[in-house]
Amino acid sequence: MKWRWLALAPVLAVLAGVPWLGDAVLIQFGINALLIATLAQSWNILGGFTGYVSFGNSAFYGLGAYGTAIAMAQWHQPFWLGLALGAVLAVVVAAVLGGPILRLRGPYFAIVTLGISAALSALFANLDIAGKNIGLILPLTRDDAMFYELSLGLLAAATVAVAWIARSRFGIALIAIRENEDAAAAVGVDATRYKLAALILAAVFTALAGGIHAYWITFIDPAGSFDTTLDVRMVIMTMFGGPGTVFGPVIGAFVLSAIYEVLANGISTAAALFFGLVILLAVIFLPKGLIDLGGGFRALGWRYFLANIERHRL
């Protein structure tokens, strides 16, 4: 197992070397792709492992952005303190909301999470310290290479966390909850505590990504920070790559980011249409995600896709 991890070192080295290519557009694409991959990976901790589909993680992203912006723009504190403030805000909100909302199951949980970001957006639009509707301007730092490496480091940390989860007692408890929550409780799994821990962990990484993004773009407002389209992207990218796996969300995020980038250079409406088509086909033919394609195709050949269609009998 340890040797397989070593195989990742060159991949990480190549990714870390991208800023030295000096292509500004590529670096900017990289920062966006790395941050959205971090969001997908964070979403995976709760959504992929426990099966609790959240459409509210953008709330943690927004809290991370506002924590960083308030600390830096209003209180003139260093960036790292802002990141910490954003993470603390996200943990507090996750801990307070998690208790009641994680009692809901299936579609009820998903529907409730839809409202969280909108509520926080309205709240921050009325806070003086958050710049009300107008938002906040952060100090300008023109160092995209630094933002790139920070984003890469955060994604690596989130992925290491998920790799640990996948092999731990904690992780198998999360999977048991996904497979059958009542049976998990009967076996002795404290489902409430584990779900809450998963949500809080997801909130921390999501908030850190929001903080890095806020400092990078130097301007934040309520609509852009508590952006529910982000929630849809996290879910789609994780589902596309492979929910409940270590690398699926990262691969899903990179592939879809790249496809979107290529298509967006053409006609934008056609891009959106094609993007939708890719997702539709993926859901039908690859319900376990892109990461399952290699092994599944080797085992079953073309019948792999037919077998997947049959899995939709529910």
């Binding site: 092999r167 731990s168 007692r169 198998i172 408890a173 999977i175 048991a176 996904r178 497979e179 059958n180 009542d182 049976a183 998990a184 009967a186 076996v187 002795g188 799994v189």
Partner: peptide, 28 residues
């Protein structure tokens, strides 16, 4: 019967051992 359907038979039983009486075995 309420198995954990997506898991292997061995993983199903491992879950019983990992939790269960006294909080279960810590080591996977």
């Amino acid at each position: 019967t309420k198995p954990f359907p997506g898991l292997s038979v061995l993983d199903n039983v491992t879950l019983g051992a990992l939790f269960g009486a006294g909080g279960g075995e810590r080591d996977r």
